[in-house]
């Protein structure tokens, strides 16, 4: 089955989220974000702090509601759900957070943490906790005697494994990892990445991966989206992240990465200016003020995502000439 024929599990259509700010201003955290996610695949979202990636996935997990736009999971719009319908649909999307220590109650034993989602939905009886917890621990390659321990006695990597086990308890179709490996050392990070990949293969889970590490995203994502100031500026097949990318912001991002196989004889490049505040995003292209290829049109009209080659979308006036 080719990639295009894979079932779409999640589709965001022009999702916009506006937060009210002081002095009657508006903070546009997401501006018409449209992205799709296929079964068993990974969608990587990269971008710098404040670009709206966390806001976006919070809406996917229904922790927040879009101001406008629709989010479809298995074809059904979830953005307007309420009450028990909302509760039911939340089962399909589970989340793993950045800091494993902050996402657990320190007073709960591991087995209670792992079984809480199942108890919430009334899927298991208290008697079954021990067996289920042991099964979930084995899935994330942890010893089963962890079930009776507390999370504070564990290392960061072990805690993140427990966070993953808890997210998997409800057998979701979509797993959201919000900087799930950023707080970990590289060797631990690698083991968590390996675990996520093997779970994805086994269960055909779709993963939304938020990550500021472009290299890591490239190694994991089938599709990668680059966000800047609430806008998706480029969408590429994961493999192309790094080579086949052309948006000026993506290039700036890539030029600023320190890597162990970079060319050390060249000075590091980066844009000198600061990211503008999302409270006053410039009219026209959001990147116009910092872009060295900025044209007159960029300051007036905002470019929209358009496909330049199969699977590769870009929002930049430089690539409009062909049309």
């Amino acid at each position: 089955m080719s990639e295009n024929e894979k079932r779409i599990v999640l589709e965001a259509r022009e999702v916009t989220r506006i937060f009210p700010a002081s002095n009657n201003r508006q903070l546009v955290a997401n501006d018409k974000v449209s992205l799709t996610l296929h079964a068993g695949e990974t969608l990587g979202i990269v971008g710098e702090s404040g670009c709206g990636k966390s806001t976006f996935v919070r809406m996917l997990a229904q922790l927040d509601k879009p101001t406008s736009g629709e989010i479809h999971i298995f074809g059904d719009d979830i953005s307007g759900l309420k009450g028990s319908a909302k509760r039911k649909s939340r089962r399909h999307v589970q989340m793993v957070f950045q800091d494993p220590a902050d996402s657990f109650s320190p007073k709960m034993k591991v087995k209670d943490i792992l079984c809480e989602p199942l108890m919430n939905y009334g899927l298991i009886k208290p008697k079954e906790k021990q067996t289920i917890a042991e099964y979930l621990l084995s899935q994330v390659e942890l010893p089963t005697d962890f079930a009776d321990r507390y999370t504070h006695s564990m290392s960061g990597g072990q805690r993140q494994r427990i966070a993953i086990a808890r997210a998997l308890a409800l057998e979701p179709e979509i797993l959201i990892c919000d900087e799930a490996t950023s707080a970990l050392d590289v060797s631990v990070q690698k083991s968590i990445v390996d675990l996520l990949l093997s779970i994805q293969k086994k269960k055909e889970i779709a993963i939304v991966l938020i990550c500021h590490d472009v290299a890591l995203t490239r190694s994991m994502a089938h599709t990668a989206a680059v966000m800047y100031l609430g806008n998706v500026v480029e969408v590429v097949p994961g493999k192309q992240l790094g080579h086949g990318m052309c948006h000026p912001y993506t290039e700036a991002l890539r030029g600023a990465i320190f890597s162990i196989d970079m060319d050390f004889s060249k000075p590091i490049e980066s844009i000198e200016s600061e990211t503008p505040s999302p409270l006053d995003v410039p009219q026209g292209c959001p990147f116009a003020g910092r872009c060295d290829k900025c044209m007159d049109v960029c300051r007036i009209t905002k470019p929209f995502l358009r496909e330049v080659e199969p699977g590769h979308q870009i929002a930049c006036h430089l690539y409009n000439k062909t049309n």
Partner: peptide, 26 residues
């Protein structure tokens, strides 16, 4: 350190770093 690491630990540390040129898992 980067090209000719002698110690096993250094080699492991280097291998764990995702790079733009390195392998992709998918």
């Amino acid at each position: 350190i980067l090209k000719h690491p002698q110690q096993e630990y250094t080699q492991k540390l280097l291998a764990a770093i995702p790079t733009m040129e390195g392998e992709a898992y998918v």
